[in-house]
Design a protein around this nucleic acid. Structure first.
Lengths: 133, 133
DNA sequence: ACTTTAATGCAACATTGTTGCAAGTTAAAT
DNA sequence: ATTTAACTTGCAACAATGTTGCATTAAAGT
């Protein structure tokens, strides 16, 4: 909420961001925690993720099943970063990926003011679609 | 998952369904529980909701903030019920409503198989947009 | 009425996320 | 290089949400 505070670079923050940068898929808090190898407390990771989301460096994805994941955005064309792209959630391997080029078009009654959209598709990803078992 | 089991009508199930039928907005497990007035256990409501979702009588909505809500569908044109309509989540009053007529169009790479979509818009609903405070 | 099996209540547990506060660190100012 | 303000962390405690096992109850068909 408060965008006035300056945020600092710490070892834990750098580690979390590095993990997200390296990952091709979105990661949950727990998955990130496992990869940090007890570098810092569980709570600290929650707070780091909050900060990174607030600073528009990563974005938060809520899946159809309620799972919350985080992903770093690989495009930074605009100054102001709007996360209006789609996410794909594979029902088999459970991985969530950003479909940065897929953007929905829609018509909504004029008496609604839209600030944010969330568009998640679920089904089978290319990998699981090929390995048919 | 197992669609072969038959489901039974019980007092608790009827009550939960009635609450959802009466409501114009989507309700969370907790909100439903409050309205039941301790008719049944908390766990029972979870199980009833699972059953109703499985039987395609209600649908589950996961909001941007991770909140899970349930809503009864008011259209039943098709035999097979696909929940591809949009949901609107008001940032002010926190109410979630189904926008049954709003359906997104999109283009997705052919190597993905889409089974389900979730399209949630958030911002200000007509009510909160008018009362500008 | 009887039988089968789905549904329920209860207790216990698991997961996920939040908060307060003292102590530690960062980055800027001196 | 020191100092300093305030951001960050660890820890403990808590809260909310959802799940599981099992004995008991009740629905629906016969």
């Amino acid at each position: 909420m408060d965008k006035t505070k300056t945020t600092r670079n710490t070892a834990a923050k750098t580690a979390v961001l590095e993990i997200l940068t390296q990952s091709k898929i979105a990661l949950s808090h727990t998955e990130i925690q496992k990869q940090t190898n007890d570098l810092c407390d569980r709570v600290t990771i929650y707070r780091i993720l909050d900060r990174l989301v607030n600073d528009d460096i990563i974005h938060k994805i809520v899946n159809l099943d309620g799972t919350v994941k985080y992903a770093k955005c690989h495009h930074h064309a605009q100054r102001v970063h709007i996360h209006n792209h789609a996410h794909f959630s594979c029902e088999k391997c459970l991985e969530i990926t950003c479909l940065e080029n897929v953007k929905p078009s829609y018509i909504i009654p004029h008496n609604y003011k839209v600030n944010e959209i969330n568009f998640t598709l679920s089904g089978l990803c290319p990998n699981c679609l090929n390995s048919n078992n």
